[in-house]
Nucleic acid binder design. Structure first.
Lengths: 355, 355
DNA sequence: GTGAAAGCGCTAACAA
DNA sequence: TTGTTAGCGCTTTCAC
């Protein structure tokens, strides 16, 4: 059994070294007002000299913050992503934006996985809250819209951000501009001359699925194009993407372009196109959503909507910490624009094209 | 400013509900012996009824564990990996193995980034230790061999695992079988008839670099082949891989096969081969190390050594927790075998091959 | 502006 | 086997 470990340098040591009370040191640590500059300097010198760093456990016990932010992800989806090693870097991008921003403010980000479709989700979440006492929680789809979760957080007075959700209600609604992104993708295709543009939607339990469809519809309407028979739905898996692509490519006239709501479904569409002897982009243009690493390595590299997940997560952390600190925070919704990267899976339609 | 949050259900509530002392509840929580079964049941019933979960901050304050394990990664390398979005899923695999295993035991994994080549590495690490008071630390290359880090951890009495390091000394040495993996790769090639097998080594500050070279040398020797002029060195980056590949492919006779110490360098070699009009695997067989997602999506998909990072990390967590709990732990070193996935970048050499 | 007090939720040491 | 006591390191009162 390891020895009982104690803090080597505590606030007490600093106080003694600087010749002030514990309280004064505490005030300096927390950058509170009402401390004379010379006092502050003296204390800070001692802190530096002794290499003092406050214990977050003790800070929390004293009734202050825990300096912990929890990022709540869907267990099944996340683990599947890790196991399958298909290059989905959603979690990495969250860490990139979330961890680094947390670090700037002396916070830490802890990733937690919970089952969305479980009856014991409340128990799991309560456990995490009780154990960690986080100062804030970042909800990711499909948790962002789960009333069990949002209500529980609200009841406990814990601030949270809902990534990928724009509904009003408590918690910061924060998202990329899904509708705008879908418009961007569709307009890119109409500008290339496409008139039959299929769309593969995501599942209904993601709010963003509907928004992306709406963006596509709006863009089609603006270009005076019909949508009938050009919408298929998947659930973000490769298999579902294949099924959707089969439906779209069997249509007559065959669409000359397809926008898929995520990379896996786009990849499935690409594979099917190749199987059917369709050249991409010669016979079929393809736009993907997410821009996970692999879409750059397939042939042809896919034109894709880039999801600025790191930016969105960084934003979420900043809002959470600002609220914690009592700083004024605007209401939102907080929408980050997405961008389109044109690669080699989209091209102009031939004027004499007869599908 | 948010309201001062307190634990809603504390050990006190449970004690009152069960009609026992705080200490008895504490004993039940910590599965200590010397509690009558009926007492235990009564307490556990109350815990379940009230939905009690101990606060790790308070547990830590009481002088017990923090239930936190820190995974220490190199800041620059990690952030570069995330930013470049090249599909490296090292962190994901660490989380997969580490988080899930932590969760089994009621622990949490916290990822920390520190600069290896910094003079303030001690300050950074001390800060993390003081703030978090982790029960264990997982060191990843190139931290695993950094004496500044290992000494500091040792001085603080914190158990740690050194991933990718086999040197004796404190901390659990735990690694994949790098030498065996390199042998596996080389033998695969000799079995296909290759006699000029080049090797691109990693940088010297990674112990595994040397081990992989040793495995290659051993395999070459066993097959009665010479190594002269067939060894080049990179630093795991794409650019360095390209330089190394140029060196190897300029040699006369040109190697008919190359083993690269990681994926990025293998990818660089593949690109160079294509530029020079070399067919893979017709003119050049290529084996990669790591098997990150993208190597399955390039043309041709690369034969690769699979790094069981999740397994290794899970192992590290288990050792750390076992030591924490006072359970007996073997000495190690703990070596996890690697495996080879044969894809389409390796093939037999033609008998009449004249490089 | 600064300091002294009490207490956060829990566990270690001790006593019974 | 169980209960009592005294902290852990910090922050919040509330005095001065």
């Amino acid at each position: 059994m390891p020895p009982r470990r104690r803090q080597s340098v505590t606030i007490r040591h600093v106080a003694a070294d600087a010749g002030v009370s514990l309280q004064t040191v505490s005030r300096v640590i927390n950058k509170e007002p009402n401390v004379r500059p010379e006092m502050m300097e003296r204390v800070q010198a001692s802190i530096l000299k002794l290499g003092y760093v406050p214990s977050i456990a003790a800070q929390r016990m004293g009734g202050s913050r825990s300096y912990l932010i929890v990022a709540l992800n869907d267990r099944e989806r996340t683990i599947d992503g890790w196991r399958s090693r298909e290059g989905t870097d959603w979690v990495d991008q969250m860490l990139l934006g979330g961890m680094l921003t947390c670090a700037e403010y002396g916070y830490r980000l802890i990733v937690e996985l919970v089952d969305t479709h479980s009856d014991h989700i409340e128990r799991e979440l309560l456990g995490a809250i009780a154990a960690l006492q986080p100062d804030g929680v970042i909800l990711t789809p499909p948790h962002s819209e789960n009333p069990l979760i949002t209500r529980l957080l609200e009841a406990h007075g814990i601030s949270f951000a809902r990534i990928g959700s724009l509904k009003p209600g408590s918690g910061f609604p924060i998202s990329i501009d899904d509708e705008g992104a879908a418009r961007l993708a569709t307009e890119h295709l109409t500008a290339l001359g496409h008139r039959h543009i299929g769309f593969i939607a995501g599942p209904d339990d993601y709010e963003l699925s509907g928004l992306r469809v709406a963006g596509w519809r709006a863009s089609m309407a603006a270009a005076g194009l019909a949508c009938e028979g050009l919408l298929a739905q998947g659930d973000f898996t490769f298999a579902s993407g294949r099924a959707a692509a089969i439906a779209l490519l069997s249509r007559i006239p065959r669409p000359t372009a397809i926008v898929a709501s995520n990379d896996q479904m786009a990849l499935a569409t690409l594979e099917l196109a190749h199987e059917r002897g369709l050249d991409v982009p010669g016979d079929l243009s393809l736009v993907s959503f997410d821009d996970t690493p692999i879409v750059r390595f397939v042939r042809p590299p896919l034109t894709a909507i880039v999801q600025p997940i790191a930016d969105v997560t960084a934003r979420a952390v900043e809002l959470l910490i600002a609220e914690q600190s009592g700083r004024p925070v605007p209401d939102g919704p907080f929408i980050t624009p997405a961008s389109l990267v044109v690669r080699q899976s989209t091209g102009p339609i031939l004027p004499d094209h007869t599908p």
